[in-house]
């Protein structure tokens, strides 16, 4: 998958000049009607009134955003204070997603580098090994992790049998378990884009640096990392964005207690809370945050291209 991303910005071939609009139309229609319009409707819903026991009433209100940012007490009649809890959930999600990204990078970069520098034949095998987990169902992987780390799971059993611990290590239903799940879920997402970047890396640069008596470390930080930065950033985004809105890891590994944004939103539609406008508002806030991250990414890419 070398080359660009199909942005169509390079030398433009014109074999089918004039057919651009009809050819792109199906994509516009499908994504427009079934994603853009729904997001706009969701935006509208976030300003509607919550109906008692689920559903919405078509009366405009800022109640959902008010609930998100202000605490008006148990009975809703106290003077508003800043509501920290939802901000905290968002902060926890950002922190967890950020930590998962860093951990994935620490393991993923050396792995990607190692694989990309193998001779072509064995490289295929390494690449195959890293791609398989990427294609395994995310739910299955989360379940496997849950099975492995629970108090009576194989890991604790073996450690107990081997006499290394006297009591099971309690990880399940903690923030650590969620972190482990996120890291495990999205690790392959980090390796593949960095691999693609390292594969295109020009090793003459390393040689030049060595000739100038740069140490290995200096070469790595001053020469290599800047050149493969696009791959690193792409990998970070592919880990960070899905981690931010993750639902399976907090639900299955966190015991629905270590709430992250994904579980908070899900609860508004599937669970007892039944507050659609609030769920829509939380989803809009999450979407806004992700778009801000992506805009920064796009700008850094544009700067890199110049």
């Amino acid at each position: 998958m070398a080359g660009g991303l199909g942005q169509g910005t390079g030398k433009s071939a014109r074999t089918y000049a004039g057919l651009g609009v009809p050819l792109i139309l199906p994509a516009w229609l499908i994504i427009g009607i079934f994603l853009v319009v729904p997001i706009l409707i969701m935006l509208v819903y976030s300003f509607l009134t919550k109906e008692f026991r689920g559903g919405v009433i078509w009366e405009p209100t800022l109640a959902a955003y008010d609930q998100f940012f202000f605490d008006r007490g148990l009975f809703g009649d106290e003077p508003p204070k800043i509501e920290w809890t939802y901000i905290l959930i968002f902060w926890r999600s950002i922190w967890q997603a950020g930590l998962a990204t860093v951990l994935c990078l620490l393991i993923g970069f050396p792995t990607a580098w190692f694989i990309a520098t193998r001779p072509p034949n064995s490289r295929t095998i390494w690449l195959f090994l890293i791609t398989v987990p990427y294609w395994v169902n995310l739910l299955i992987r989360t379940i496997s992790m849950k099975f492995l780390i629970r108090d009576n799971g194989p890991l604790n059993q073996w450690l107990l049998d081997a006499g290394l611990i006297s009591e099971p290590i309690h990880v399940i239903n903690t923030a650590t378990a969620v972190q482990l799940g996120l890291f495990y879920s999205y690790l392959p997402f980090m390796v593949l884009p960095i691999y693609a970047a390292v594969e295109r890396y020009n090793f003459a640069l390393s040689e030049a640096a060595a000739d100038l008596y740069a140490s290995r470390w200096v070469t790595l930080t001053q020469v290599i990392i800047p050149s493969v930065k696009p791959g690193i950033i792409a990998g970070c985004i592919l880990v960070f964005v899905p981690s931010l809105g993750a639902f399976l890891a907090p639900d299955l590994l966190g015991g629905a207690k270590n709430f992250m944004i994904g579980s908070l939103i899900e609860e508004q539609f599937k669970g007892a809370a039944g507050n659609w406008p609030f769920g829509a508002a939380a989803a809009m806030i999450l979407l806004t945050m992700v778009l801000i991250v992506l805009i920064f990414y796009a700008r850094s890419q544009a700067r890199g291209a110049r």
Binding site: F269, K270, G271
Partner: peptide, 12 residues
């Protein structure tokens, strides 16, 4: 898995 979830789904 709860009476409230039943109600929410029917409302949805």
């Amino acid at each position: 898995d709860s009476n409230e979830a039943l109600l929410a789904a029917l409302k949805a």
